[in-house]
Design a protein around this nucleic acid. Structure first.
Lengths: 214, 214
DNA sequence: TTCCAATTCTATTATGCTATAGAATCGGAT
DNA sequence: ATCCGATTCTATAGCATAATAGAATTGGAA
């Protein structure tokens, strides 16, 4: 087909993707700071140093940009959680890993995760449901880890797996909210404390002393 | 002062306050559903069945309405927490009471608490700081309960009081977010599970079995 | 150089929103 | 019956915003 002129004569073939990612990062940043409705497309353009209308070359609409940011904010979670579920280790180890992987993105990808948490609800139904599907998958994997811990006798028999899942997520998400604002709250301190807290709460009363690797 | 004509010749002297409360409730409802920036004053007026401009008889601005809702959303927390701190009971009992009182408002006053949590950050600095003061007071009381538990030997000596406080708040706030959306999550189930979880995580390893009154 | 597609720009439309000004209404007290 | 203050209304100013149309520009390939 005559060279590849019709296929990809674009820029350096890497630039376009990087540029699109910059757009997304700018949108994430602005949405995180001002909220979806409080953010104007002008604000996003300002971050990039381009004109407001130029954004529409990359996004069909402001709403589409929000969905893109939110998708980026969740998509990797389920993948990594699944690796933990299927990987080696005790249930406590797995909980530790889950917490670690839940909090990790907060450091470099705070904008995306914050936007996902706070703003996804403003998406129109179809988009919201697409996001919700990814979310549910993630939750189910976490719950399975906990259920396995209960089944194996490592966790208390009376532990409510659904509540435990929500607790794990809730703790993680609250950390997302104040990470960077709470002085002295380093990633390590938060992570180790939350792991410790959850594992203590989940394990049997007569379990041997804690020794969780992470 | 001639009777009290100049002081309060208003309606039935109870109606005006009730009406103002209705305004606030309407604002809270709309802000909770659509977010501060996503909500229009028209939306609020629609809930009340009045004209958009009529709202300005009660609020100086949309922003003032937000501050009023947020204040209403926090103000009682510190008061009740202080009563718990000063009241009787073990540290575990007090944690249980704190969780209970933190979650209680979610049932009837969900709109206010949700708005407080999600939208307070859009307040202008002075107002945000007014709210933040109430908030800090509340946090400090909780932390004090935990510190007393550690000091008395009831809680682990290596429990990080600040992290424990944030965990308690984080758990509570996450419940706020999904209460009403998570099927089967009744107030009782959430409360008892969270209390159980936190107390297990806080207590000494060799402590006697749980028996928390609430 | 010339061309072409990718990218950004200018200009504009149409809409929605907060807030103000001042008129109308309502019900209780005189 | 009249008055008065509290409440709600009509009308509108003034601004910000999302999105579209089409022109200009850019840099690499032919």
């Amino acid at each position: 087909m005559r060279n590849r002129t019709a296929i990809a004569p674009r820029r350096a073939a890497a630039s376009p993707k990087r540029r699109a990612a910059e757009m997304l990062a700018a949108a994430a940043k602005v949405f995180a700071r001002r909220g979806y409705h409080g953010a104007s497309t002008q604000d996003i353009a300002d971050v990039l140093g381009i004109r407001q209308a130029s954004l529409y070359y990359y996004f069909e609409s402001k709403e589409a940009a929000l969905e893109a940011v939110c998708s980026d904010g969740v998509e990797d979670y389920a993948v990594r959680a699944l690796a933990v579920l299927r990987g080696p280790g005790t249930a406590s180890d797995k909980v530790a890993k889950l917490v670690f992987h839940h909090l990790s993105p907060v450091v470099e990808r705070q904008d995306y995760t914050v936007v996902f948490h706070r703003e996804r609800r403003y998406l129109p139904k179809p988009a919201r449901e697409r996001i919700r599907t990814l979310e549910r998958r993630y939750e189910r994997i976490i719950q399975k880890v906990i259920e396995q811990g209960v089944a194996s006798g490592e966790f208390r028999a009376d532990l409510d797996p659904r509540m435990a899942t929500l607790a794990l997520l809730g703790l993680g998400n609250s950390a997302t909210a104040w990470y960077g604002r709470e002085p002295g709250a380093t990633f390590e301190r938060i992570t180790s404390n939350y792991i410790d807290l959850l594992v203590r709460a989940f394990r049997k009363d007569d379990a041997p002393p804690l020794r969780v690797t992470h």
